Amino acid sequence: MLKSLKLAAAAALALTALLPSPSAYAEGLIRISQQFGTLYLPLHVIRDQNLFEKHAKALGLDDVKVEWAQLSGGDAINAALLSGSIDIAAAGIGPFLTLWGRTDGAVKIVAGLANQPNYLITSNPDIKSIKDFKATDKIALPAVGVSVQARILQIAAEKEFGAGNQGKLDNNAVTLAHPDATAALLSGSTEIAAHLSNTPFQEQALKDPKIHKILSSYDVLGGPVTPTYLYATTEWRKENPKTFQAFLGALKEATAWIEANKKGAAETYVRVEKSKLDPAFVQSLIESPESKFTIVPTRSYAFADFLYRTGAIKKKAESWKDYTFEELHNESGS
């Protein structure tokens, strides 16, 4: 069932709390978070086709239960994971690495979701690059300071303004979920001048002639990027080995199905999200050469190195394998 978890801002304080005890876990029960956008399509397919149940049964788990939590923002998702409200977190590489560092590696990546770009878009014709932002020009993103969009903005700022200036646009950032940020940008009636977005919201906004693109995360990072990941505590995986394997098997099947059935995948997205978007439009986004559904991390280490080098996290990763579960280690990740 879909559980809508409304977490107060104070829930972010749970980042400093202890991880849930093993007694909170039970094989066959899995609670999965998701956010907004086509990046989360593999989770929609798992849910729509009952793939977790299928893989769990193959592993001898007949009495299983799946719960879905619609959350927005890395702080809320990390708080939910640490409180034991969810078992699988779905959030950007930024929130994940923040939690990985704060828990000394007690959380790890299960898999990536997809390679898709994040666009910084604006309704202000005078803003052509990040150098043009004034103090009053607000940039909407899912979570100030911690989201993958926030980190992309910081990496872009460091490249533009030089070492030590990664936070130059931090005061411009405001927290808004992608649907709300898109509506605010298109309305032109708020302080929101720009949105560091994701698919399909950024392409939807760019249909309006008043909106133009400033940059892409692919430009900032030097190529395709996996911005969003699924991650879990090492304790949960240890206590629930069959549940973990059933979920990973379901994810692999869903990912392969999307790549082979893009029309059907678009229809699934519209149906599960109850979206008003034209399925043909969603299909065009999934078929974009910039989009690839894969569980393999791409350019995640660029974020890990940046966050450690700038002091945002205190734990140093020597390789992308340091913060991923071993099931991914035979892949050509980065």
Rank of each mutant, 00 (worst) to 15 (best):
M1C: 12
M1I: 15
L2K: 09
L5R: 10
A8P: 13
A9S: 15
A12K: 10
A12I: 11
A14D: 13
A14H: 11
L18F: 13
L19E: 15
P20S: 10
A24R: 14
A24Y: 13
Y25I: 09
A26L: 14
G28V: 06
R31G: 03
F36R: 01
Y40T: 05
P42V: 08
V45D: 07
I46M: 13
Q49A: 11
E53P: 04
E53R: 13
E53H: 13
L59F: 11
L61I: 13
D63M: 08
V64A: 03
K65Y: 15
E67V: 14
E67Q: 10
E67P: 06
Q70A: 14
G73T: 07
S83R: 13
I93T: 10
P95S: 05
L99Y: 07
G101W: 12
G105F: 14
K108R: 15
V110H: 02
G112K: 02
N115G: 05
N115D: 14
N115A: 08
P117L: 08
P117R: 11
L120C: 08
T122W: 01
P125K: 06
S129L: 04
F133W: 02
K134N: 11
A135L: 08
T136G: 10
I139C: 00
A140W: 00
G145W: 00
V146C: 00
I152N: 05
Q154G: 08
Q154H: 06
I155M: 12
A157F: 00
E160Q: 14
F161M: 01
F161T: 01
F161Q: 02
G164V: 12
G164K: 11
G164D: 12
G167N: 12
K168F: 00
A177H: 03
D180M: 04
D180F: 02
L185K: 01
L185H: 03
L186F: 09
S189V: 12
A193R: 00
P200N: 09
F201D: 07
D208W: 10
I211L: 02
K213S: 12
S216I: 06
V220C: 05
L221K: 02
G222N: 04
Y229I: 08
Y229G: 01
A232Q: 10
T234Y: 09
E235W: 02
R237D: 07
R237S: 06
R237K: 15
P241S: 10
A246S: 13
F247H: 06
G249M: 09
T255D: 09
W257Q: 05
W257C: 08
E267Q: 09
T268N: 07
V272N: 03
K274M: 11
S275Y: 12
S275Q: 09
P279M: 09
I286G: 06
E287I: 02
S288I: 08
T294R: 00
I295F: 12
P297C: 09
Y301E: 14
Y301S: 12
F303M: 03
F306T: 02
Y308E: 04
K315L: 15
K316L: 13
S319E: 07
S319F: 12
T324H: 06
F325H: 03
F325M: 06
E327G: 08
L328M: 10
L328W: 06
L328F: 07
N330Q: 14
S334Q: 09
